[in-house]
Amino acid sequence: MSVTTETTYSSASQAMPIGTPRHHIIIFAVLLGLLLIAPFLLYPVFIMKILCFALFASALNLLLGFGGLLSFGHAAFFGSASYVTAHAAKVWGLTPEVSILLGTGSAAILGLLIGALAIRRQGIYFAMVTLAFAQMVFFFALQAPFTGGEDGIQAVPRGNLFGVLSLADDRTLYFVVLAIVFGGLLAIYRIIHSPFGQVLKAIRDNEPRSISLGYKVNRYKLAVFVMSAALAGLAGSTKSLVFQLASLTDVYWTMSGEVVLMTLLGGMGTIFGPFVGAAVIVTMQNYFASFGAWVTILQGTIFVISVLLFREGIVGVLSKWIKKPL
């Protein structure tokens, strides 16, 4: 896809050693260590929000940074999964793990439908097709009877995990969310570093050449689109249990924009960039909330600065400094 130019990519590609680089394992371990003690130092719901958006942004990054496909409609997957999980937990009274699986599954199916049509177009047209479908999903969420329209689905019960462990306590829920998100991040890491991931990067780098080597590129694109949609759905489902709410904000196009912003700010095509980007944006929204509408302006300014000064994103720049893919 040509929308993503080479210069905006991070330098994460420096002669990637084959196998898992040790510094990646160390970073994952340190990250996990920090996240394990975090709920005892900070407000758990705040960190859970960061975690959900980190997974959401990482899912988008899988598609954008490694598949070279810019989706501008990822809120459709995040939001629809959020609604399905909320509905399953509240109306059907299902356990949280089943509700989350249903939400994730719905996002995957929706991803298959939208992806199958969107991958026929390239570049900016691809982005526009995803946006158009996401708007249709938004409209559906606004009109459908079970979504609660403007109110959304409120007071979603967190329920008991596997029917036994109550998630009502924030800290208990936190460790479940941590397991889900960390599992999701590791899954993405593996996808990127699999034989499939290699082909994906080849297609991102040079699509005609990949075809001339005999790869059926559309199948790979569709596969990564569905994976990305499902993981975005997993993030949305988890989020609806954390906040006990599924609302129109989750499916609105600004949500799609926000997750693109997080990915770019952190560093697209890097492993840890989306996490950093999500943490920065969520923190800003949280601590600057008193500024009201100014948060949006602040976000815009940061975005402009990041595009002008460090196009590779925070982690992309770091990666260049230490000359190691991050």
């Binding site: 084959i18 196998g19 699999s194 034989p195 499939f196 082909v199 080597l213 596969a223 994976m227």
Partner: peptide, 15 residues
Amino acid sequence: QRRRGDSFDFWRNQK
């Protein structure tokens, strides 16, 4: 890698 046929095994380590 083409010799493996299609590489849709996203769960396997690239090793």
